[in-house]
C-alpha cells in the first residue's frame, strides 16, 4: 500500500482553498444581479458543474477509444472514474438549474433542449453503470463499457441538435448570442465574468483532484481483487 503522493496532498489543499475562495467570490465579489437578485448566484456553480460533466464524459469517450486500441485496463479505470464523476456533476448541474428555474421561469422544469439533453445524457451514463454491473468477466466488461462510452458520447450532441431544431429555447445563453425568447438572460459585468471564469477553473481543479483519488481507489480495488484470487488458489 503506497501512501498518498505528495503532489496529491498539495492538490487537495489547493482545491480546498480555491473552492473556498470561489464561494467567497460568488457571494461577495460578484455583484448582485439587478432583476433576479440572489438566486442568480447559483449560475456560477451551475455552469461550472455543467462544464465538468461534459468534460468527464468527453474524457470517458476518449479513454474508451484508447482502451479499444491499447487494451490496457488503466484506460478502463480512467473512463469509469470519469463517468462516475460526470454523473455527479451533471446531477449538480440539473439540480442547481432547477433551483434557478423555479423563481425565474416559475417552474422547476421545462422541456427545453438543454434541460432535456442534460437529463438524457445522465440516463445514458446510468445505462453505462448498469451495463458494467451486468457483466462479470472484467475484460469483457471493459470492452463493452468502452464501446458504450463512445456510442453514448456521439449520441448526446445529436439529441441536442434534434430537439433544438424545432423548439425555441427559453434557456439563457449568457456567453455569445442568446435567443430572443430567453428568459433570465442578463449582461455579465466584468466582475461576474471573472467570478464565472474562476469558478470554472476551480471546478476543473476539483475534477482533476477527484479523478486522481478515484483512479487510486480503483487501483487499490484491483489489487484487492488480485489478492482475493491469490487466496482462493
Amino acid at each position: 500500500m503506497k501512501s498518498k503522493p505528495k503532489w496529491l496532498k498539495i492538490l487537495d489543499i489547493i482545491t480546498i482553498i480555491s473552492f473556498a475562495l470561489a464561494t467567497l467570490m460568488v457571494f461577495f465579489y460578484a455583484p448582485l444581479e439587478r432583476v433576479m437578485g440572489a438566486v442568480q448566484k447559483v449560475f456560477y456553480f451551475h455552469v461550472s458543474a455543467g462544464w465538468v460533466g461534459m468534460l468527464s464524459f468527453m474524457i470517458a469517450a476518449i479513454a474508451g477509444i484508447a482502451y479499444l486500441i491499447k487494451k490496457d485496463s488503466k484506460w478502463d479505470l480512467v473512463g469509469y472514474s470519469a463517468v462516475e464523476i460526470g454523473i455527479a456533476f451533471t446531477m449538480i448541474n440539473v439540480i442547481t438549474g432547477s433551483i434557478w428555474a423555479r423563481p425565474i421561469w416559475n417552474s422547476w422544469w421545462t422541456w427545453d433542449p438543454r434541460l432535456t439533453t442534460a437529463t438524457i445524457m445522465e440516463l445514458v451514463y446510468f445505462a453505462y453503470i448498469m451495463l458494467r454491473q451486468g457483466i462479470d468477466d472484467p475484460e469483457r466488461r471493459n470492452r463493452f463499457s468502452a464501446v458504450y462510452a463512445i456510442v453514448g458520447f456521439i449520441s448526446v450532441p445529436l439529441t441536442f441538435f434534434s430537439i433544438r431544431i424545432f423548439d425555441r429555447t427559453i434557456h439563457p445563453v449568457v456567453i455569445g448570442s442568446g435567443d430572443a425568447n430567453a428568459i433570465g438572460s442578463f449582461d455579465m459585468t466584468p466582475l461576474m465574468l471573472q467570478t464565472l471564469l474562476f469558478s470554472i477553473l476551480v471546478f476543473s481543479i476539483l475534477f482533476v483532484d477527484l479523478m486522481w483519488h478515484r483512479i487510486r481507489l480503483g487501483q487499490y480495488s484491483n489489487e484487492i481483487e488480485e489478492l482475493k484470487l491469490r487466496i482462493q488458489d
Partner: peptide
C-alpha cells in the same frame, strides 16, 4: 445478450442513445 442482466439491459442501453 452477453450480460447477466440481459432481459432488462437492451432497452436501457438503446433508448437514450436512439432518441435523436
Amino acid at each position: 445478450v452477453q450480460a447477466r442482466t440481459r432481459d432488462i439491459l437492451l432497452p436501457i442501453l438503446l433508448f437514450p442513445v436512439v432518441i435523436p
